[in-house]
Amino acid sequence: MSRAVRMAILPLRIVSVSNLRECWRARARRTKAHRAAAAAIGPLPALPVVVSLSRIAPRQLDDDNLRTAFKALRDGIAARYGIPDNDKRIRWEYDQERGKPKEYGARVTICEVGTPDMFEASKGKR
């Protein structure tokens, strides 16, 4: 059985919003851009899926800031499916890649898992 995979590199600068001091308008503008970028991914594979979000940047973030930084993009992807981002049919994975100086982006990979039974079985293998 073949499984659908969708991969896209989005031209986003994923920053840690936890420690960022900025005007609410700037934050709202960035959040809107990240959610809109989810539309650029193209047709999505059928649920259940594993979504891997990888930040490309010269420096790394720690794990909790990485998850927070991807929140708006995660919400945008879940909204494309028409479900909340805590739905059990989507498993979220986070990673980072070292980019060149001033190179920023987000690699999004969405892999169809198959049947819900396969999704539950794959959770135990991690």
Rank of each mutant, 00 (worst) to 15 (best):
S2Y: 13
R3T: 11
A4I: 14
V5G: 12
I9S: 14
L10N: 09
L10A: 05
P11Y: 05
L12S: 00
S16F: 05
E22W: 11
E22P: 01
C23D: 12
W24D: 15
W24M: 14
A26C: 06
T31A: 12
T31Y: 14
K32I: 15
A37I: 08
G42C: 12
P43T: 10
P43D: 08
A46D: 14
L47S: 08
V50T: 11
V50R: 08
S52V: 13
S54G: 13
S54C: 14
I56R: 12
I56F: 03
A57G: 05
A57S: 09
P58K: 00
R59E: 07
R59Q: 10
Q60N: 10
D62F: 12
D62C: 03
D63R: 10
D63M: 15
D64T: 06
D64F: 14
D64Y: 15
D64H: 09
D64G: 02
L66H: 07
R67M: 07
R67D: 07
T68D: 08
T68P: 01
A69L: 04
F70Y: 01
L73K: 06
D75Y: 00
D75I: 04
D75S: 05
I77K: 01
I77V: 03
I77E: 04
A78I: 02
A79S: 00
R80D: 01
G82R: 02
I83Q: 01
P84M: 04
P84S: 08
D85P: 08
N86E: 06
N86L: 06
K88M: 06
R89T: 06
R89Y: 01
I90R: 02
R91Y: 03
R91W: 10
R91H: 03
E93G: 09
Y94H: 11
R98T: 02
G99L: 08
K100P: 11
K100Y: 09
E103Y: 09
Y104V: 00
G105I: 03
A106W: 08
R107W: 10
T109A: 15
C111A: 12
G114Y: 03
G114N: 04
G114C: 03
T115S: 13
T115A: 11
T115I: 11
P116Y: 06
E120P: 01
A121F: 07
K123W: 05
G124C: 07
G124K: 15
K125A: 13
K125V: 13
